[in-house]
Design a protein around this nucleic acid. Structure first.
Length: 466
RNA sequence: GGCUGGGUGGCAGAGUGGCUAUGCACCGGAUUGCAAAUCCGUGUACCUCGGUUCGACUCCGGGCCCAGCCUCCA
C-alpha cells in the first residue's frame, strides 16, 4: 500500500484518499517572470512522478492534478516595467517557455493549470469570507490583512510558535498591521499598477490567497495532497492553511508533500550566489532525459547536489539501460498487453509505495536490464518480455520511452551525419573482412575523435555518441 | 536564537537490528583480430562518544559537523 511522508504530521502514513475515484492533488507552480531553473525542474519532475504513480495505483481517470500559475505579483510587475512590456505579454512568454521546458523533460500536463488573474472573483470571495468571519481586516492604508492570532493552529505545519516567529522576525514593523506577523490578502493599487475592483477598492491579491482560492475552486474545500518546494512550507503553505480553513471552516489538504532543494557545492542554488542554471542552459549540454534521470536518482525530500559530474554519471547510467533494450524488437501485439509482473515489478512497486523511493526503483531497473543482457541471445523471447516489463516500469518514472537507437545516437558531438557514419562503418567492415586491421582501426579512431563509439556485435556494427 | 532535515565505500546514492543495494569509476578473468558492449568475479563503507541488546551502520541519549527555513523563493 502506498505510504507518503506527510509534512504536517511529520510521519510516513498510509495514503487513503477521500474519494478513491477522484484523488485530488494541488501543487504550487511557478511565478512566471523568468525562465525555469533546475529547481523548478525538480518540482516539475517530482510531482510528475507522483501523478504518474497515483494514476497507476488509482486508475488513469481517477486522479485530478492541478498546478497553478502565478501571473501577477511584484516581481512580474517589476520585470514588465524593466522591459517596457505589458504584463500579459510577459507572462505569456514565460508560460510558453515553461511549457517547452516541461515537455522536454517528459512532464505530463496537469489536468488544469489555473492562473491567478483568471480567478479574481474566487480570490475576492474568499477574502470577503475571511473578513466576514473576522479572520481579516482592512487596515488604514487600504490593504487587507489576515489576523494571524485569530487562527488557533497557526504554525502547525512549519512547527513554529507565534512568539518564536515574532522574536525571529527581521521585518520592520509595518504600521498598518496589527501584528507584525499578519500577512497581506489584498494590496491596494499604487498608481500605474495593474488592479482589479474589489469591496476594498482597486488593488490586487497577495500571493498566498491565490493558491487558497484556486485550489479550493478546482478541487473543493477539502482534498488529498498539496505539494510544493520545501521553502514554501513557511510562510506560504502555513498561510494557505490559515486562509482556507478560516474561510471554509473545513479541513484543507490532508497530506502535505515538500520536495528538497537543488544545491550547488552544498549550497542552495540562488541567483544571488551566481550559481544558477536554467533548464534550457542545461539542455544545451545534456539530453533532457539525462536531467530527468538525475533528478530522480535521489529521494525527493533530500537535497539534490547539481554538477556536471553527476549529469555525466546519469548519462552513463541511462546509456547502460538503453543499451540493454537496444536491438530488441518489441512485438507490438505483445507489448500492448499488460506487462509481465515478475518479482522485479513487485519490488519496484514496493519501492514506489514507500514514499516514492525513486532511487531504489531505479536500482531495480538495472537489475532488470542485467537480466535482459544475460538472456538476450539464449532466450530472446524471455528477454523481450523483460524488456517490455522494464519499459513499462520505467514509464512510471517517465524514463526509457524512446527508441534506444534514437537515444544512443542523439546529440551533435562531432561534425558527422548519421549517413556519413554509416558509410565509414561500411568501409571499416570491408577493411576488417580484408584483414586490413590498421585501416579499420584508423577509421574507428577517427570516429572516436568525433565522439562516435563503434560496437561490433554478432549481427553487425552499431554506433552511438558518447 | 528558534524550527526542519542530514552525516554510508573513490564519487553519487538506497536500505536494514545479525544475510549482495544500485549506478559510475577502479582491478582481475571470459569474450573480441584489437577494442567497445556484455558476462563472471574481487576490493574499498556506514561522523564521534556513551547506552540498550546475545548482536547496531540500523534503536536511545550527548557531542561535533553540514544544509535549509524563520524575508520574495520550487
Amino acid at each position: 500500500m502506498l505510504e507518503i511522508y506527510n509534512s504536517l504530521t511529520k510521519k510516513t502514513q498510509p495514503f487513503r484518499p477521500l474519494d478513491e475515484n477522484n484523488v485530488r492533488i494541488y501543487v504550487c507552480g511557478m511565478t512566471v517572470y523568468d525562465y525555469c531553473h533546475i529547481g523548478h525542474a525538480r518540482v516539475l519532475v517530482v510531482f510528475d512522478v507522483v501523478y504518474r504513480y497515483l494514476t497507476h495505483v488509482f486508475g488513469a481517470d481517477h486522479v485530478t492534478y492541478i498546478r497553478n500559475i502565478t501571473d501577477i505579483d511584484d516581481k512580474i510587475i517589476a520585470r514588465a516595467n524593466e522591459r517596457g512590456v505589458n504584463i500579459t505579454d510577459l507572462t505569456n512568454e514565460f508560460i510558453d517557455a515553461m511549457n517547452v521546458d516541461a515537455e522536454a523533460l517528459g512532464v505530463i500536463s496537469p489536468n488544469e493549470e489555473p492562473r491567478a488573474t483568471a480567478h479574481m472573483q474566487q480570490i475576492i470571495d474568499m477574502i470577503q469570507a475571511l473578513v466576514d468571519k473576522e479572520f481579516a481586516y482592512q487596515a488604514e492604508n487600504g490593504d487587507v490583512y489576515y489576523a494571524v492570532s485569530k487562527f488557533e493552529t497557526y504554525g502547525q505545519l512549519s512547527g513554529r510558535q507565534l512568539d518564536d516567529l515574532r522574536a525571529g522576525a527581521r521585518v520592520e514593523v509595518d504600521e498598518a498591521k496589527r501584528d507584525p506577523l499578519d500577512f497581506v490578502l489584498w494590496k491596494s493599487a499604487k498608481p500605474d499598477e495593474p488592479h482589479w475592483d474589489s469591496p476594498w477598492g482597486k488593488g490586487r491579491p497577495g500571493w498566498h490567497i491565490e493558491c487558497s482560492a484556486m485550489s479550493t475552486h478546482c478541487l473543493g474545500n477539502h482534498f488529498d495532497i498539496h505539494g510544493g518546494g520545501m521553502d514554501l512550507k513557511f510562510p506560504h503553505h502555513e498561510n494557505e492553511i490559515a486562509q482556507s480553513c478560516g474561510a471554509t471552516g473545513e479541513a484543507f489538504a490532508n497530506v502535505w508533500m515538500h520536495n528538497g532543494f537543488v544545491q550547488i557545492d552544498n549550497e542552495k542554488m540562488a541567483k544571488s550566489l551566481g550559481n544558477f542554471f536554467t533548464i534550457r542552459e542545461v539542455l544545451e549540454q545534456y539530453d533532457p532525459e539525462v536531467l530527468r534521470y538525475f533528478i530522480l536518482s535521489s529521494h525527493y525530500r533530500g537535497p539534490l547536489n547539481y554538477s556536471n559530474v553527476h549529469l555525466d554519471n546519469a548519462k552513463n547510467a541511462l546509456t547502460t539501460l538503453y543499451t540493454a533494450i537496444r536491438g530488441i524488437n518489441i512485438d507490438e501485439s505483445v507489448s500492448s498487453k499488460p506487462a509481465m509482473q515478475s518479482e522485479f515489478s513487485t519490488r519496484f512497486f514496493a519501492a514506489m509505495d514507500n514514499d516514492f523511493a525513486t532511487s531504489e526503483a531505479q536500482a531495480i531497473l538495472f537489475e532488470l536490464a542485467h537480466e535482459i543482457n544475460k538472456l538476450k541471445s539464449s532466450q530472446p523471447d524471455v528477454a523481450m518480455n523483460y524488456a517490455i516489463e522494464l519499459k513499462s516500469l520505467a514509464k512510471l518514472l517517465g524514463l526509457l520511452q524512446r527508441d534506444a537507437e534514437e537515444f544512443l545516437q542523439a546529440g551533435q558531438s562531432g561534425e558527422l551525419s548519421a549517413d556519413e557514419i554509416e558509410q565509414k562503418i561500411v568501409q571499416r567492415n570491408q577493411a576488417r573482412a580484408d584483414k586490413d586491421f590498421s585501416l579499420s582501426d584508423n577509421i574507428r579512431d577517427e570516429l572516436l575523435e568525433q565522439g562516435i563509439v563503434l560496437e561490433d556485435g554478432s549481427d553487425g556494427t552499431t554506433w552511438r555518441r558518447e
